[in-house]
């Protein structure tokens, strides 16, 4: 039985698939994430933007369109508004504040980790190395966040 089959049977999936927004400015990291997503048959659920302001715009637009983002994969080191800024603004916005956020970054600085959790991140993950690493990370994220965990719904 594949992970995907199990996903379909979870109660969390009743309202349809969860949309994932990836905020990543490094095109190769974005490509790796997308390729891994594609191999896990998640490609049509994952959207990518490359800076903080675009992320907030997309989150609000998606909500207005009735297809809210169910999980945000957020890089910290971004041009303009960085990941910390996005997180702070998100948590201060009544419409968006319950959005689950997984930080996906190459930073291992303890200050970044602590800061992210303080600002309301739900998980902090280091970017994997190698395509196999990405596959494993994305499979784990799917398994936990899109299958095991029950996410807030409107």
């Amino acid at each position: 039985m594949s992970v995907l089959d199990r996903t379909r049977r979870r109660p969390g999936a009743i309202d349809g698939p969860v949309n994932v927004l990836l905020v990543e400015d490094n095109p190769l990291d974005a490509r790796s994430t997308l390729r891994a997503a594609r191999k896990l048959e998640l490609a049509d659920r994952v959207d990518v933007v490359s800076d903080g302001q675009a992320a907030l715009d997309r989150l609000r637009q998606a909500r207005a369109d009735g297809v809210p983002v169910g999980l945000l994969l957020l890089d910290l080191n971004l041009p303009g508004k960085d990941g910390h800024d996005v997180l702070r603004e998100l948590r201060a916005d009544p419409d968006l504040q319950t959005t689950p956020v997984v930080i996906l970054t190459s930073s291992v600085e303890q200050a970044d980790v602590n800061g992210a959790y303080q600002q309301g991140a739900n998980a902090y993950v280091n970017k994997p190395t190698g395509l196999d690493g990405w596959l494993e990370a994305m499979a784990t994220i799917r398994e936990f966040w899109l299958s095991l965990a029950i996410l807030p719904r409107r």
Binding site: N26, L28, D29, R31, S32, R35, S106, T129, G130, L131
Partner: peptide, 16 residues
């Protein structure tokens, strides 16, 4: 480290 990581990533993506 960062650009080198990209080189490795690019190679692996190309390979895949």
């Amino acid at each position: 480290q960062a650009p080198l990581r990209n080189v490795r990533q690019g190679l692996e993506l190309l390979d895949d």
